[in-house]
Every structure is written in structure tokens, then in C-alpha cells.
């Protein structure tokens, strides 16, 4: 199946946050559980992603070459082409579907939180009891239920500024690149497409009007090296060590049994 992707044109976003509301409405997320709305000196609200907030608009005050800008970034799961969260998940709750969606099955999750710590973008969030560790991880699934039934993700469907698009990834990449060229022609010299090749190519492509760092995006996100080392080298080596120890003990037991008798021991 062709890989699907979301194209987010941040030059079009007006920060109306309709996507946040639609996301909560469709995915049954609470509005207030982690942060009550309060005036904290910014239009940005809520202040961070949470188990109940899978997407939100991040506001950045940016002093660019052509003066002051407000940069808006629709945060959420990147649906990486090479997702570290899926690799480290010990339960199989996180999966990469054949259409590229990185999905999370809450019934399988045991709340270990590895995904929250190995994600290069710090996206999955844990709803957990700190003492007992009981809880669930959660994140944006690109509205898997809607998408597999031929509908658009809730946020894309609702976006009044037409900043969001969703479909075949190659088509989205082509649209994004064309949009970047158009923006450059109109004087947005720093326009760029983020997510083309990062971490196996992201399923969430951003058309940005300033460098990624200005939005708070990692300029060069990497699949965590320690995850590869841990899973591809240390874990298999551990199994080999257990096997060798058990074989060694059995061998020693057999040799010892032939040579030493209990009665002879003082």
C-alpha cells in the first residue's frame, strides 16, 4: 500500500486551533485534564502536548530577516518512516501499518514509557501513576479509524485555512516542494520542506517559512543510536550469554558427576 502523509503548510496556518478541537472531539480526549485554560502570557493553549492533547499549535515569536513573525507549528506525531517507538515497544502496542501510519493500541500498552523516551521528537505522552507505573501511552494516530475508512483525519477535515492536506506521500511531497518554490518566488527566502528524509522520511511534512530550529524542530533528528545498540547488539548478546552459561553449567555438572563423589568429600 502506498505510504500516506500529512502536509502541513505553516504559511497558511492562522492558529485558529480548530484542529485541536476536532482532534479532541473525534478521539474522545478531555479538554481540561492536564492543564486548565488560564492566562499564562501567551495565546498558545494548552501549554504542551499531553495524553489528552495529541496535537496543538505551538506559537513562536520570531525575528526574521524581514522583521517580526509569529511562527505557528502544528505539533503531533511525525509518523516516522523508521519509528524508534515501534522498535522499542515491548508489547507491540505501537505498530507501523503498511500505509505508513504509526498506530498505538491502548489495550496492548502496559505503560512502560519507553516510546516517550526514545522518540526523537518527544511526542508520545504517558498517562501514568508515578508510584505504581500503571498507565497508558498515547499519541496522534492520524485518525487510523477514519483514514482506513476513506475519510480524512479529523484535523485535516476541519482546517478552515486549508493549511492541512492528507494523502499519498509522494503526492504530498510534490505539493510541498511546489509550495516551497511558490513561497520563495513570493519573497519567503527561508521557505523549506521539513520531513523529506528525516528518520526514514516523516509522515508529517511541514512547509516552513523559517529554518526548522526557529520553530523548535530538531534540525537534524536522528533515530536514537542507543536504541539500535541496545536492541540489535546488547539484547542478542545477553541471550547468548544466558545460553552459554546454562550449557557451561550442564557440562560442568556432567563432568563433575563423573569425577567427584559426595562420599569422598570431607
Amino acid at each position: 500500500m502506498a505510504r500516506l502523509a500529512m502536509l502541513i503548510d505553516e504559511s497558511q496556518c492562522t492558529a485558529c486551533r480548530g484542529c485541536q478541537v476536532a482532534c479532541k472531539q473525534w478521539n474522545d480526549r478531555e479538554g481540561w485534564l492536564y492543564s486548565r485554560t488560564r492566562n499564562w502570557g501567551s495565546y498558545e493553549n494548552p501549554p504542551d502536548l499531553s495524553p489528552q492533547t495529541w496535537t496543538r499549535i505551538k506559537f513562536t515569536e520570531y525575528e526574521g530577516p524581514d522583521g517580526f513573525h509569529w511562527l505557528f507549528l502544528k505539533e503531533g506525531c511525525m509518523h516516522c518512516g523508521n519509528p524508534a517507538c515501534v522498535a522499542v515497544c515491548p508489547t507491540g502496542a505501537l505498530k507501523q501499518q503498511s500505509n505508513g501510519l504509526v498506530t498505538l493500541e491502548p489495550e496492548l500498552c502496559n505503560g512502560c514509557g519507553y516510546c516517550t523516551q526514545f522518540c526523537p521528537f518527544h511526542i508520545p505522552r504517558l498517562e501514568t501513576d508515578v508510584l505504581t507505573g500503571q498507565g497508558k501511552s498515547s499519541k496522534c494516530t492520524f485518525c487510523q479509524d477514519r483514514v482506513t475508512n476513506g475519510l480524512l483525519p479529523a484535523c485535516v477535515k476541519t482546517c478552515p485555512a486549508k493549511a492541512l492536506d492528507f494523502g499519498d506521500r509522494e503526492e504530498m511531497v510534490a505539493k510541498g516542494l511546489a509550495r516551497v518554490e511558490a513561497l520563495k518566488a513570493r519573497g519567503f527566502t527561508q521557505a523549506n520542506l521539513y520531513g523529506l528524509n528525516e528518520v526514514g522520511g516523516l509522515g508529517r511534512l511541514y512547509v516552513l517559512v523559517a529554518p526548522p530550529e526557529a520553530y523548535g524542530l530538531p534540525a537534524n533528528p536522528q533515530y536514537p543510536a542507543l536504541a539500535s545498540f541496545w536492541q540489535k547488539i546488547v539484547q542478542p548478546l545477553g541471550s547468548v550469554a544466558f545460553g552459554a552459561t546454562i550449557v557451561g553449567i550442564l557440562g560442568a555438572f556432567l563432568i563433575t558427576r563423573r569425577n567427584i563423589r559426595m562420599e569422598e568429600v570431607r
Binding site: T91, E107, C109, N110, G111, C112, G133, Q134
Partner: peptide, 10 residues
């Protein structure tokens, strides 16, 4: 490791 069993073991 999955779901309730995993939570119990943890």
C-alpha cells in the same frame, strides 16, 4: 508484556 498482564508484571 501486553496490557493488564504487563502492568501486573511491572
Amino acid at each position: 508484556a501486553q496490557g493488564a498482564a504487563g502492568e501486573f508484571f511491572r
